[in-house]
């Protein structure tokens, strides 16, 4: 069940020049989120900026929730100044989360940029798993230590070759497919990142007959299905990213 609640800022620190890690403690009992779900966070209680912002949670601990956010505009610009102890307004958790199958399917997770927050919420909960993670430069890759510790097999790339392989995650996906032919028929992809990346991955997946899911992002005012602002085109017509999504099967999305 989703709630409108207040939370205390526990830590709010820069992981690099653009990406911050925020940890909050809700002041009341809230629903435990499932991987891929998100919360709306109010950057400021004045009316400018007006709306709360959606953020996938990264990790949940006992009464603590962590988020990753990149400094993009006015809202995140204010968030980076949240001092420890500040009381903030939030709502959530929202969204359908990643469908996890308790069968023999092998999860391949793919993250681009800050899509890693949503992807890691799932990655940490899986056993046998693969991860492809890419960012523009080394500076924008975060939580590599955590990924190393969590036991799966992972592949990292940067556009400028400053870390891992040079290139984009879709190239790594093609490499993965050719080098893992023995298991590829059991693989299911979970992906989060920029739309062009998701589109490209979905195309490669379809060409190789691999099923998968993408967590989408859209501007939204409410987060709980009322504003209809976050509509995306799907084969079932417009659907709300916040409610029917954020996670959609590749085959349903009209790119």
């Amino acid at each position: 069940m989703s709630k409108n609640f207040q939370a205390r800022v526990i830590t709010n620190s820069a992981l690099n020049s653009k990406i911050y890690l925020l940890e909050i403690a809700p002041l009341e009992e809230t629903t435990v989120p499932s991987p891929g779900q998100f919360y709306m966070i109010q950057p400021d209680s004045s009316f400018d900026p007006l709306l709360k912002r959606p953020f996938s949670y990264l990790r949940k601990k006992a009464n603590r929730i962590q988020f990753l956010y990149a400094i993009r505009g006015k809202g995140t610009g204010l968030m980076k100044n949240f001092p420890q102890g500040k009381i903030i307004n939030m709502t959530g958790p929202f969204g359908n989360g990643y469908p996890v199958h308790n069968d023999n399917r092998i999860p391949l997770l793919i993250a681009g940029g800050t899509g890693i927050a949503s992807i890691l919420s799932l990655y940490c909960e899986l056993n046998k798993k693969y991860l492809i993670y890419g960012a523009k430069t080394r500076d924008e890759l975060v939580l590599i230590d955590e990924i190393e510790k969590s036991g799966g097999e992972f592949f990292i790339c940067t556009n400028d070759c400053s870390y891992g392989k040079k290139g984009m995650v879709d190239e790594l996906l093609r490499d993965f497919i050719s080098s893992h032919q023995d298991i590829i028929s059991s693989v299911v992809i979970y992906a989060c990142g920029p739309k062009p990346m998701l589109k490209s991955i979905s195309k490669i997946a379809s060409e190789n007959n691999i099923k998968g899911f993408a967590s989408l992002e859209e501007n939204m005012a409410c987060g709980f299905g009322a504003c209809l602002g976050c509509a995306v085109k799907t084969k079932k017509g417009y659907q709300r990213v916040c409610k029917e999504g954020t996670v959609f099967p590749f085959a349903e999305i009209v790119w």
Binding site: F47, D48, A221, L228, C230
Partner: peptide, 23 residues
């Protein structure tokens, strides 16, 4: 009614624009 294509909303100072299109 299907409504308008996205993006349908955008925040502005102390407000927001919407063009949901009466979905």
């Amino acid at each position: 009614m299907e409504g308008n294509p996205p993006p349908r909303i955008c925040e502005t100072p102390c407000g927001m624009l919407n063009a949901i299109g009466l979905q």
